[in-house]
Design a protein around this nucleic acid. Sequence first.
DNA 1: TTGACATATTCCCATATAGGCATGTATATT
DNA 2: AATATACATGCCTATATGGGAATATGTCAA
Lengths: 114, 114
Amino acid sequence: MARARTTSDAFNAVAEPRRREILDYLALAERPVGDIVASLGLEQPSVSKHLGVLRKVGLVRVRRHGRHMLYRTNAEAIRPLHEWTKEFERFWTHQLTRVKERAEAKSQERTTTE
Amino acid sequence: MARARTTSDAFNAVAEPRRREILDYLALAERPVGDIVASLGLEQPSVSKHLGVLRKVGLVRVRRHGRHMLYRTNAEAIRPLHEWTKEFERFWTHQLTRVKERAEAKSQERTTTE
DNA sequence: TTGACATATTCCCATATAGGCATGTATATT
DNA sequence: AATATACATGCCTATATGGGAATATGTCAA
């Protein structure tokens, strides 16, 4: 079996840094594709493809306005990600844990090759 | 260019559902590989490979105990993910936003093919 | 209708995956 | 030393990717 599709869920879609940048950019206001292209410095087809992925997993919403397509982030779709990571929050808030981590990190440097 | 490596960062590593399950499982206590195999119902080599990915991005720590390798989740490495998703939290906490989303979701069903 | 503009789609390709299977390596036991 | 146990690694394959370039689609303007 190969890697899961980027369009299979929010986790996979968001793994791509460029798509996270797009979501950041479209979080505050809806914008046409051209603005994203100018802002991210990517080729227009690339941006359209990224938007296609984001749209399939519901991370962005679109609406046509003349010949412009206005995209914007649908934060609700990021929620599952937030909920999952939140489960681990308590592990790094405890001082004790952090102290232990630091000590173990040293012996780790030898084990973790590359 | 192809897709980024699963070992390039926590975002990519965590995109795989099985790896998230492993992180959930190893969050509370350290466990040998055999336990994970039994718990997830995956082949041992698969588990070892997943653990290899998680280790390379620092999501798990290992320590040898006899012929057992004791793994456990390093929650600290999940933190960047949490921080990023947290930025969007305010968008779903506002009632107004949610109401608007719901209304727009309807017209979306026609646009979002597949 | 013709043309310009905005965006989407298609084709091509090098690259990395995840699983299955076989095998290698390290440690403990006798 | 020989064997069993616990993991790790290597090999193979189908599959999806992201970027680049070219082209198609859709909308407005004259």
